[in-house]
Amino acid sequence: MNRRPVFLITVLCFGFAFFYIPILSMIVYSFNASRLATVWGGFSTKWYVSLMSNRQVIEALMLSLKIALVSATIATILGTMTGITLARFGKFRGRMLFTGLVTAPLIMPEVITGISSLIFFILMADWIGWPGSRGFTTITLAHITFSMVFVSTIVQARMLQADRAIEEAAMDLGSRPWQVLFDVTLPVISPAILSGWLLAFTISLDDVVITSFTTGPGATTLPLLIWSKVKLGVTPDINALATLMVLTVGMGVVVAGIVMNRAEARRRADERMAYRSND
């Protein structure tokens, strides 16, 4: 096709304008001097200054990071186990149910997951006295449950692409099954595990609905803090907070993308070298 696809390029331009104009507008208005969030009243950085001294925001951020770190790590361990199981173990008793359990959280509306977790925690506290109060622990448990299936999807996809011959070779050379797992399988799928962890981390950091149901008195994560303020309308300090969050995550993703691209290119170059030296 030698005709330039003018129509498609135009749609792309409009599409990306649609994606980014709201975010850019939010960033611009975070420097608004006026207290009225949508009327321009001159340039100012005062909302950022007041944000820096806002203890509530900093505490909420810390709690969110703590929950995201713990839940992403446990979710990655459980999700990796799930992905390996589904990709390698073929048929085992209860596989049907297991596959269902791994798929269901992906399509379950968040509000239902949230309510069922809350009812579960309330009844458990009633029956066996645990959990004593809702907060960090209950939020983290709920986050692990719905983010582990995302990790599992990524790991399973990577496992299905991976070359089984290497694992079989290790077995033939006398490795025990769990040694194969730790020495061969896990290193091979480590990029997938890392992206799984990153995904679980961002899912946890971003979640509002399930957190709002599983939280208790005193445990306010950053999204919950924003949620409670945003329900009342648009304010300039939320604009500033949003700008900081969007820029941090944006830069993180761009840097991670560049690093991953480079690592991938280096790996390909190494593979080529290895094949060439075999000839």
Partner: peptide
């Protein structure tokens, strides 16, 4: 990129518009 940034904030951005 927008997928990695906060869902809540993307909704919020439209409230401003």
């Amino acid at each position: 990129l927008p997928f990695w940034t906060s869902f809540l904030l993307r909704v919020y951005a439209w409230m401003g518009l």
